[in-house]
Amino acid sequence: MRLLTHNMLSCNVKGVTNGFPLIIQADKVLEKPAELNHDFLRNMFYKVDWKALVDAAKSMGYSELPESAEASMLESLDFLNRFHHALMELHLEEGALICPETGRKFPVDKGIPNMLLHEDEV
């Protein structure tokens, strides 16, 4: 699972109001090379939650993203490379996603998070 997917997911348990971002427990991280697409990254920059991405990348062992970012940084190839690597090339293979509000754990197995809810959580 890419961090782009992580950036979209929030805890879906009924009644949870601050279920984003999910905390990452990284037991196994994979790096898979992907082709860098400038236009896509420029577009994504305005859609991702930057802080969530920075923290997620850190929990996956990658701390090369600046704590805060602004659009002018998109002119820098170095910045684009780091952004691309964090968003598209780091994959959470085994571990868990944890709700920041309730601590509910969603296991990640073979790269697939299990967001199924129990009967009393719907």
């Binding site: 699972m1 979209m8 997911l9 279920g19 967001m115």
Partner: peptide, 16 residues
């Protein structure tokens, strides 16, 4: 990428 979830209970943030 895959997520195991019931579409009815899916919560995706923003307009990504």
């Amino acid at each position: 990428n895959f997520v195991q979830c019931d579409i009815q209970n899916l919560k995706l943030r923003g307009l990504t």
